[in-house]
Simulated scan of single mutants.
Amino acid sequence: MQEIKVTLTKNPKKKPADESKLGFGSIFTDHMFVMNYDEGQGWHDPRIVPYGPIELDPAAMCLHYGQEVFEGMKAYKTADGRALLFRPEKNMARLNRSNERLCIPLVDEAFCVEALKKLVGIEKDWIPTAEGTSLYLRPFIFAVDPQVGVHPAKHLMFLIICSPVGAYYPEGLNPVKIYVEKNYVRAVRGGLGFAKTAANYAASLKAQDEAEEQSYTQVLWLDGVERRYIEEVGTMNVFFRIGDEIVTPALQGSILPGITRMSCIELLRSWGYQVTERKLAIDELYEAYQKGQLKEAFGSGTAAVISPIGQLKWGDEIMMINNGEIGEVSQKLYDNLTGIQWGKLPDTMGWTVEVK
């Protein structure tokens, strides 16, 4: 395993005084992890250095052709001062699946987890401790070849940056309003939908902007072919409690295989719930709503953990779910996931990794 060189900053930043006003993703810590890839040499020169700007050639291929992937994960501070990561090996495995799809050289997953742990260990004092806060971690890889020509990169950079954060949505754990998108398409099977890459998010901006103009927090995407089957929300996978069944769209290549999604399914099944991964049409969901069978809806993701859905707007139809209140399954999942993540509950699933 390569040695990670460490250069500590001589000008540490002032840490946020009021953790209730952190917001999401706008404050960054003192250091970052950097590693380079050059054809013939592989991934090399892993280092932790002071956080700061990076120099890019104006012809850098990432700026022109979008060859980029990223991950999102968090570090949590326990009441007794320990730092915990949540299933980091799953994030690094998913990063490599994205790498493979974007023709980016694979990384050593175990080494990258160790690099992450080393960086978090250095930035441990940046992990906030107020209720609902954490240190968001953003590993990402991008092409830096200075060439305007479409082909897989031969030179890339891998960085990890850290950001102390509060709730992702302003609503916090209060149910959000979601707009069902009918005009635009985010991804199709065979495309990039399952990869965590910038292109997917760029494709979602127009619909997100229109949803916000109508006072909706996020967009629920339908499949790109029939425009009928539910896929995911822009930043979350989705679950629906229909009767005694909890349904989530099956992974068929056009939606992100979320780590929190996976964890929710495993927890729910361990509690005895019937969880089904299948195709779910929006008209089937609306029919269930009309019959009073749609009891609950929620999203899952690293940023929000669990986000209850209180309202869905599909065309002219408004579905008010569970009287706009958080449901029992959403609450139980949130309590248990965050309980494990913050070390408040015993980790019987073996999901957390302590940073020494």
Rank of each mutant, 00 (worst) to 15 (best):
R261Y: 01
K177L: 03
S26M: 12
D316T: 07
I127V: 05
D335G: 11
A304C: 06
Y201K: 10
A187H: 00
E232A: 09
K14E: 14
E287W: 14
T133E: 00
G40T: 08
I104C: 15
S20R: 13
G191H: 08
L137E: 03
G172Y: 13
V353A: 07
P308M: 01
V275F: 02
V353T: 13
D223I: 02
L267T: 08
M262G: 13
N200L: 02
E354V: 06
K154S: 14
V165R: 03
L173S: 15
P58A: 13
I104K: 09
P88N: 08
L268I: 05
K356F: 07
E210M: 14
F239H: 06
L22S: 10
Q218W: 03
V69C: 14
T235R: 04
P16N: 06
I104S: 01
N336W: 09
M320W: 15
Q341E: 03
D38G: 13
P53C: 07
L220Q: 05
N91R: 08
C112F: 11
T129Y: 07
R189K: 15
E245L: 11
D38A: 11
T276L: 09
F24L: 03
Y168V: 00
Y273K: 13
E296K: 05
L156W: 08
A83R: 00
E287D: 15
E131S: 11
S254E: 08
R47F: 05
Y168T: 01
N200K: 04
A83C: 06
I54R: 12
E19F: 03
S330L: 04
S204I: 03
N322R: 09
C264F: 05
S263K: 00
N99R: 04
I306P: 00
K10E: 11
P139D: 09
A17D: 12
F239C: 05
A110Q: 13
S263G: 00
I230N: 06
A203H: 13
D223A: 05
N336K: 12
A167M: 07
G301I: 01
R101N: 11
E100I: 11
G350N: 06
Q331T: 10
W314S: 06
A303S: 06
L337G: 02
D108H: 10
F158S: 10
V148R: 12
L294N: 03
T133I: 00
G350Q: 08
